[in-house]
Design a protein around this nucleic acid. Structure first.
Lengths: 238, 238
DNA sequence: TAGATTGTTAATCGATTAACAATC
DNA sequence: TAGATTGTTAATCGATTAACAATC
């Protein structure tokens, strides 16, 4: 790694994206496999960190060490962004960062609602997570009279009965589901008619993307914990 | 699906596991691939739900519909549990549930500490997630004087300087990391010397299992959100 | 030039799907 | 028996790794 001699900037969460002229032309025609896309946010975070430390260039083996992705796989992945590297030299961090940012759509703006104002819903609505990713939480909804009317940051918790009208009216992109228990049918009913374009689902029940027709990311934390305890106990036995 | 005619029981989160005699002998010798293990909690949840509804048997195609996993893959996965199915008939829900529960170690007990008492740390320590998976949260730690001393459920937030001694003394199994920003080195330093056997990492920085030598589950929610927004915008373009 | 490191091809590995004989 | 559905094998698909020629 090579650094500029200037002092490192403050760590910014979103680094200003260089002007278009500065960007390497990614190839928007080419379809990037899902497995690669899933690794991009990791590269993005890592490159941002390098930029913050004024690291100018990096080799695939150095980036491998930092990201935990093999050098060979890294080179395969970065191929999709055109010739961002130089043989015998490495990759230009800034150009790589720009290419990946552009592809990931960093800087685009989205709107969201959080459905379920329990522990997790409240934590998410208080976190900076959304603003850091360009997502504006415009509403929080719940079924329980105990929490409806409560204030969460800039939002007042609304009755879930108002959900569909609100989403349609405010043109909401993302539904964040934080409902502690429900079956898939219930969740789909909830989303149906809201016009949202994607679902971030923390509920302990997967939503099948094919059944709802829009992108869904299921993030069942209970399953993740179960996997961990399994790994721990199976490692103990050895 | 076939149901018993008795009224469904109340939904229990952990269903009593049938006695050993009732269990199909899983084959503990056989190594189950990671990809299969990761699907087991989903089957577990689904089968528990079926048991609660007194469904006695189910075919791979029915279970496929419920879980979103293909019937062919289901049969491949269930192979690892020995002959739990009957040709021409289907699977006995109870035996399947028992076999999977046993393999996943449902019923085993673990201890944990939560490190970071911010939004997420507090939400997790208030949630029923841990007790539902047999995990007892015995301590919550933070660096900030603002939260140290505060009460969270049955825990008082302690100074992170006490972490190692506490973990060693209380024989803690799992460290739950909810630190908003840190690099891998910091996180590893934090864990090192605690003697924990696994890490559930919500921090926006992966920990490489190989670097720390114990199982780690990295769950970077920011990356997950980024993947979703990518999917949404790439679907729009079509 | 010599050394380094990419871009790319080929080999390997593993996971998923398809198909069907076995058998309840 | 006839129909249904598993268990299992083979085919396919995709992802990862290895290797090295190209070239900075």
């Amino acid at each position: 790694m090579r650094r500029k001699t200037t002092a490192p900037e403050d760590e910014l969460d979103i680094i200003e994206i260089p002007a278009i002229a500065d960007m390497t032309s990614a190839r928007p025609e080419e379809q990037i496999p899902d497995s690669v896309i899933r690794r991009l946010p990791r590269y993005f975070r890592c490159l941002r960190e390098l930029l913050n430390r004024d690291v100018m260039k990096i080799s695939s083996s150095e980036l491998s060490e930092l990201t935990g992705v093999s050098a060979s796989q890294l080179r395969q992945d970065l191929k999709y962004f055109g010739g961002l590297g130089q043989r015998g030299y490495g990759y230009n961090v800034k150009r790589l960062y720009s290419g990946i940012s552009e592809r990931l759509g960093v800087g685009k703006k989205y709107t969201a609602v959080i459905i379920g104002a329990g522990n997790l819903g409240r934590a998410l609505s208080n976190s900076r997570l959304f603003e850091q990713r360009g997502v504006w939480v415009k509403g929080v909804f719940d079924v329980s009279d105990k929490v409806i009317g409560g204030v969460l940051g800039e939002n007042t918790v609304k009755n879930v009965s108002e959900l569909k009208d609100f989403c349609r009216g405010a043109n909401i992109d993302i539904a964040v589901l934080c409902i502690p228990s429900a079956d898939q049918t219930d969740l789909i009913k909830l989303i149906d008619g809201t016009g949202v374009k994607g679902v971030w689902n923390f509920s302990p029940c997967e939503i099948d993307e094919n059944k709802i027709g829009i992108p869904v990311v299921n993030l069942c934390t209970a399953d993740s914990l179960m996997y961990l305890t399994y790994e721990i106990s199976s490692k103990q036995e050895k």
